[in-house]
Amino acid sequence: MADILSILLSDSFWAAALRIATPLIFGVLGALLCERSGVLNLGIEGIFVAGAMTGWLAVWMGAPLWLGVLAAALAGAGFGLIHAILTVPLGLSQHVSGLGVTMLATSVAYFTYRTALPDVTSPPRITPFQPLDIPLLSDLPFVGPVLFQQTALTWLALGCVFLVWYVLNRMSLGVALRAVGDNPDAVDAQGLSVYGLRIGAVMAGSALMALGGAFLTMSAFDAFFFGMVNGRGWICIALVIFASWRPGKALLGALLFGAFDAFQVRLQTEVGAMVPGQVFLMAPYILSIIALVVAARGADYPRALLTPWFKGQR
């Protein structure tokens, strides 16, 4: 018991929780933006992979870190555009199209990586984002290590939470975006473009997802591995429902998830000998399913989610 308490009170634990949460914050925000406009984006898992690979590859080829981030976001937006064209003006199955985009983005990323580096055996490293280490602030007890020794990408993620919240709740664009996911006919009647809003939301959301991937290769690690995304995208799809499509709750959900994951890793070192290690590896996925089941009952899905809308047809 005392051990558990000392874990929960340690600053390294909460710093790890925020670090684990960062890619999920990007991913949940991205998925939330797509779904709020009425489009489920199951391309997320592949877009994570594409973002991770693109950001890493750009830096490995000599680009500065932030250009790598931009490249990752553009790659994400590009795959988002494919999903958006298939599902918005063409109105095809969002499930199947999303899975197709995941397959496409993953295979494009893997193929590109293998073609660019045909004979490497150990993944080459880049110099990733370093902890910011803001003077004075990072010396504060507890908050210093937890908040002020994270990398710039974690701060970008936190900034994006505010940005998405601000756009959705304080701007007329956000009103239109939410309306297009609930009642596209009404948006059309106001003379706004349903297609434009949805395509834009899916592209922006996909760019955010790709940033989640970029965090993995450019901050959490310093190289690209096959299979490194490992279901994080799917976990985000579960967390969106848990977060009831709200940016603030998305942050909370991602943080709770990060805290749980950081906790079980620490628990593993305490009781590791008694339980097979795989039990701990399974835990995040099981937790996501539990979160989904708990949240599903009262879930207030965007009303037009999954429903295609065609101009000129009521």
Partner: peptide, 27 residues
């Protein structure tokens, strides 16, 4: 029973089951 989207649960179960297989193969 709960309205939990089967897309997400089956996708996540793929990971759980594969880890379970690894556990069995090492145990």
């Amino acid at each position: 029973r709960f309205g939990a989207d089967e897309v997400v649960t089956t996708l996540l179960l793929n990971f759980i089951i594969l880890i379970f297989v690894q556990m069995m193969l090492e145990g």
